[in-house]
Amino acid sequence: MVIIDLFLSRYVYFMIVVLLAIGLYGMLGKHNLMKKLIGMNIFQTAIFIFFIEGAAKRGGSVPVIDEILGMEAAQYVNPLPHVLILTGIVVAISLTGVALAFLLVIYRTYKTLDDRAIMANMKESAE
């Protein structure tokens, strides 16, 4: 029973841990740079979901003040993580754009996106 209670109160965190592990595997285990970028995006998304999950309150409404609900803090979910993640998503988009630009340049230069081939090529041209 204790384990079931723990699972019911923490299951969102477990899902987030699964997403984080998938993202980390994409960044570490894959050799294609594009797949590394996708893994990084999954990792970022897991962190966004973690923040949004922390904002939830039982019985809380969306953080837009409504005359029916009044002004008490218990009536609304925590608005602060929403703000932080709103800015975080935009930064993630611009990060993805710059990373894609770098990938294009790398592909045009080396004709491949495999990191082992790129490292071998760099070592060869350094000698």
């Binding site: 109160s9 969102v12 965190y13 003040i65 608005p79």
Partner: peptide, 27 residues
């Protein structure tokens, strides 16, 4: 995760520190 607050806990530390001020004063 064992040390984190429960799902949708109204008394979680993140929900009682500064966010009540924002909710009550913003209008």
């Amino acid at each position: 995760t064992v040390g984190l607050p429960d799902h949708a806990d109204p008394q979680a530390p993140a929900n009682v520190h500064v966010s009540p001020t924002y909710i009550e004063d913003s209008v």
